[in-house]
Amino acid sequence: MKSIPFSHTVRDTLSTIAGILFCGFALKSFLIPNQFFDGGVTGISLLIHELYHVNIAYVIVLANLPLIIMGAYQVNRTFALRTLAAVIGLGLCLAFINYPPVTSDKLLVSIFGGVFMGIGVGLAIRGGCALDGIEVLALYTNRRISFTISEIILGINIIIFLIAAIELGLPTALYSILTYYTASKTISFVIEGLEEYTGVTIISGESQPIKEKLVMELGRGITIYKGERGFLKNSFDISQDCDIVFTVVTRLEVRRLRNMVHAIDPKAFIFTSTIKEAAGGVLKRRVREH
């Protein structure tokens, strides 16, 4: 196996450290002073801290340890070791850095607590580790029962917020759900970025001029699948060979691509799919023209 370039190691380490600091800030300046919660293992740790007054720095490390060990078998040992280091770093951050409370306004706490928590978790994921082991548990459980990973995580979080509602009141639980939602959206933004990529598939009888426009005008790389079109209800036995064109654009370019294709063939069939991560090939990192 090829060794990871040193520059990548430095980048991942700095990303993880920044993630730890953001998570520590979210917890000590927003969530903990106002008895708010998040989802996952972090939510469980906050709940234990509030109910039993155990130091959050210890709880968050101990709660993640079984899942980190599980991660060594479910994912790989490198991921588990990185996650262990990150979680211990978060524990040290919570124990020794005195972040001052920022606000007691519940709406501000729920929104910005979630934003900073999401930034922290997202940066840690970009660094190749996790600050919350709930997805490892979901992955482990997914292989033994028929539920999806998302359904398992949702079920665990419902239990956390129900306990919070019973023990600390419904308003606190509802605001905490808003915190979790905000954090989830922020994590997606940090990981995927503003220019989330979209896969576009085009089926048309005018594929040749469409291919030329995509490459020469949009500057995109294309992949061609050989297919057949036709098979209509009233003429099922009639079909024609066609080129199915696939390309990847940023979501900011989808409308321009649609307009360009429909100007060539108004009957062209176009469908899109979200791509979580794309690298290599002919990809523009920024859109410079619309």
Rank of each mutant, 00 (worst) to 15 (best):
C93F: 14
I153T: 10
S146P: 07
A85W: 11
I119R: 04
L92Q: 10
M117Y: 06
N157S: 09
N98A: 14
F161D: 00
G128Q: 01
G127K: 01
V87G: 00
P100Y: 11
G91M: 10
T141K: 09
I163G: 01
L81P: 04
L162E: 01
Y99S: 02
G113K: 00
G89Q: 10
V109F: 07
I163E: 01
I88R: 11
M117R: 04
V136Y: 06
P101S: 06
I125T: 04
V109W: 06
P100V: 08
I159F: 12
P100E: 08
A86K: 03
L107P: 10
A85I: 13
V115I: 15
N142T: 13
R143A: 15
E135G: 01
L139M: 14
I119M: 14
F96W: 15
G118W: 06
S104N: 11
S110R: 04
A138D: 06
L107G: 12
T141D: 07
T148L: 13
I166W: 03
I166S: 05
L94Y: 11
L90M: 13
F147G: 00
Y140M: 12
G133T: 02
I134Q: 08
I159K: 03
A165V: 02
I111P: 04
V121H: 02
I152K: 05
I149T: 15
A124E: 01
I156N: 04
V87H: 04
R126T: 03
L108W: 09
L131K: 01
D132I: 09
I166C: 05
A86F: 11
L162C: 11
A138L: 12
S150G: 13
G155N: 07
A95S: 15
A80M: 04
R126W: 09
